[in-house]
Design a protein around this nucleic acid. Sequence first.
DNA 1: CGAATACTGTCCCATGGAGCTAAGTATCAG
DNA 2: CTGATACTTAGCTCCATGGGACAGTATTCG
Lengths: 114, 114
Amino acid sequence: MGQYSERLNGIFQALADPTRRAVLGRLGKGPASISELAKPFDMALPSFMKHIHFLEDSGWIRTRKEGRVRTCTIEKQPFAAVEAWLSEQRALWEGRTDRLERFVTTPRRKDRSS
Amino acid sequence: MGQYSERLNGIFQALADPTRRAVLGRLGKGPASISELAKPFDMALPSFMKHIHFLEDSGWIRTRKEGRVRTCTIEKQPFAAVEAWLSEQRALWEGRTDRLERFVTTPRRKDRSS
DNA sequence: CGAATACTGTCCCATGGAGCTAAGTATCAG
DNA sequence: CTGATACTTAGCTCCATGGGACAGTATTCG
C-alpha cells in the first residue's frame, strides 16, 4: 500500500501541469513527434522538452528517436497506478460512509463540472 | 475538455506529496484534528500545516475550528474530478486501442464498475 | 556540399514548494 | 491568574519547477 509512494509522486506531479495533461491528451489519440506535440503551445522548444522529459521520467510516456525525429507514445501503467490509488482511497471512504453521512448527504455547494 | 484545468493543477499537485497522500488516507477513515494528523510525521507543526493548507486550498479537505482544535474532514469532489480526467483519457485511449497494440501487449483490464 | 529541419545542451531567471526555528495568540484546565 | 495545549504567524533556507535565450549537433533535402 505504501512503497510505490515515490513513483506516485512523479506520476501525480506530472499531471499537475496543464501542458503535460494536454500532451497526454494528444498522445492518447496516438503517437506523435516532439515538434508536432509542441506546435499548439506557445513555448520555446527547450522549455517544452522539459515537460517531455518529465513525462518520460515519471513513466507516462516512452520516446524513441528515429533519424532526427523523436516519437512519443503514451504508457498505460501510470493510469493503473492512479486508479489503484483511487480505489484504495475509495475503499477507506466507503468503509465508513455511515459516519460521514452528516457531511456528504447534503447536496454539495460545488458544481459538478463533469 | 480543458477549462477546469486550473482546478486540476492543485488537485493533482496535492497528490504529488506522500505526506499529503497519507493525510488523505488517514482522513479517509474519518475526521481528525491537526495535531492528531501530524503525530505520525516527524515534522515541525508549521511545516505540516502547510500541507494542510495545501489540501484545503486545493479542495481535498475542509477544516473547521472549534475552540482551539481544528478538525479536518475529507472532501469527495476532487476524487470525482480525478476520475473524470481518467475517464476522458481512457476514452481517448480506447478509441484507438487497435493502433496501440504494438505497444500494449498486456491484457487491458477494463474499468471495474466505479 | 550547403541549407533547412528537428532536436539537444547549457545557462539564466523568477517563483514556489518543503522544510526549519522562534515567537505569538487563543483556548482550556486548575 | 497561571500554565499547558493547539495551533498560527513570521521569516529564513534550499532546491525544484517552469519559463526564456542562444548556440550546438545530427539528419535530411536540393
